[in-house]
């Protein structure tokens, strides 16, 4: 089996997919670091101070002003109210929610990437693991070796898990190194408040706790890894089912994008919470944003995603070991 996994890694590296993904991520990191730096500079100019308390206070006032507007949807109002409550809570506890430094940047970035960017990167790898062999015709060579089909597929899946782990690792490493150039490399020990619970549109701070940022990051990256594995497994299934890599990617892309759209508009369609793409923004449970659909919790999302992945994995093996290859 080690030999088979080694083969798959050789092919993956030969295709330079990991290199492309790494370069894309590095470029995005640089762009976002620059944008963030500009933003901070602008705030500083506007408020004329570097004290985070003043900045945070100003943000709360700004948000409250927006709430005053009548043309604001109930949902958005709720989100904003929760945000204010959270910021107030940070202020009351005298904790800076955005301690400058690379770790803080990383925290914000992973929270924003978990729903779309990381799944996309993973999809690029996973969607052609099997289908590229079909379109190249090499599947005929692969399946006429004295190796059972399930072992071949398993070696591909193990490779996928390794590749996903590598992507998450590189994401963290690049994010830290690149943003650190601008924001400095300190801030691992900065306190972060987690454990906010949103219930009935209200922020419940009863069960909050303060943890050092590195611990928080570890949790966030763990969840991001989990989401990436799930998305990878689903793309993997498509790759088994569909002969063309482009079609597989298209289907997955549509699902992922519809997920981000749905998350913002399905609060009244309750059954949508069983769709995998609505459950991808999993780190939002750590920061305490209101979930897309009332009643969704971290445990719920993890369960739903696990079920989707398990079914996809089963189907992949079921189909691959029986399929006639023409």
């Amino acid at each position: 089996m080690i030999n088979l996994v080694f083969n798959e890694i050789t092919k993956l590296l030969g295709k330079r997919r990991l290199l492309v993904v790494t370069l894309i991520m590095a470029m995005l990191m640089a762009v976002f670091t620059y944008a963030q730096a500009k933003e901070i500079e602008r705030t500083r100019e506007r408020l004329g101070t570097e004290d985070w308390r003043t900045t945070l206070q100003q943000q709360i006032i700004d948000t409250q002003n927006r709430l005053g507007s009548t043309r604001i949807s109930d949902e958005w109002r709720q989100t904003l109210q929760i945000r204010i409550a959270q910021q107030q809570y940070y202020l009351d506890n005298d904790i800076n929610p955005a301690e400058p430094g690379a770790p803080t940047f990383l925290r914000g970035f992973i929270e924003n990437s978990v729903q779309l960017l990381l799944p996309l990167m993973v999809m690029v790898i996973a969607a052609d693991l099997v289908s590229s062999e079909k379109s190249l015709g090499t599947i005929k060579l692969l399946l006429t070796r004295p190796v059972k089909r399930w072992r071949i597929l398993l070696s591909k899946y193990i490779t996928l898990i390794l590749a996903v782990s590598f992507i998450i690792f590189i994401f963290g490493l690049l994010g830290y190194l690149i943003s650190g150039l601008v924001f400095g490399y300190k801030g691992w020990m900065a306190p972060v408040i987690s454990g906010f619970v949103v219930q009935g549109g209200e922020l419940d701070t009863a069960s909050t706790f303060i943890i050092p940022q590195w611990q928080y990051l570890l949790m966030a990256f763990g969840l991001a890894w989990f989401v990436s594995i799930v998305v990878g497994t689903l793309s993997f299934l498509l790759s088994v089912l569909v002969r063309s890599t482009a079609a597989g990617m298209g289907i997955m892309l549509a699902a992922l994008i519809s997920g981000t759209i749905l998350s913002n508009m399905v609060s009244s369609w309750e059954a949508a919470k069983y769709l995998f793409m609505v459950n991808l923004n999993i780190t939002s449970y750590l920061t305490g944003q209101s979930p897309p659909i009332e009643g969704m919790t971290l445990g719920f999302s993890v369960t739903i995603l696990t079920i989707w992945a398990a079914v996809a994995l089963f189907l992949s093996f079921f189909v691959f070991t029986r399929q006639d290859v023409y």
């Binding site: 030999n3 088979l4 080694f6 083969n7 050789t10 092919k11 030969g14 295709k15 330079r16 190249l136 015709g137 090499t138 005929k140 060579l141 006429t144 070796r145 004295p146 190796v147």
Partner: peptide, 27 residues
């Protein structure tokens, strides 16, 4: 059994030797 079904489709992005290495690893 050894076989070539239709055209010998190999991995174009690898060298001939690397291709052989892949198959050797499966035997």
């Amino acid at each position: 059994l050894g076989c070539i079904v239709e055209n010998p489709e190999l991995y174009p992005y690898l060298s001939g030797w690397e291709n052989l290495q892949l198959f050797a690893n499966m035997l």
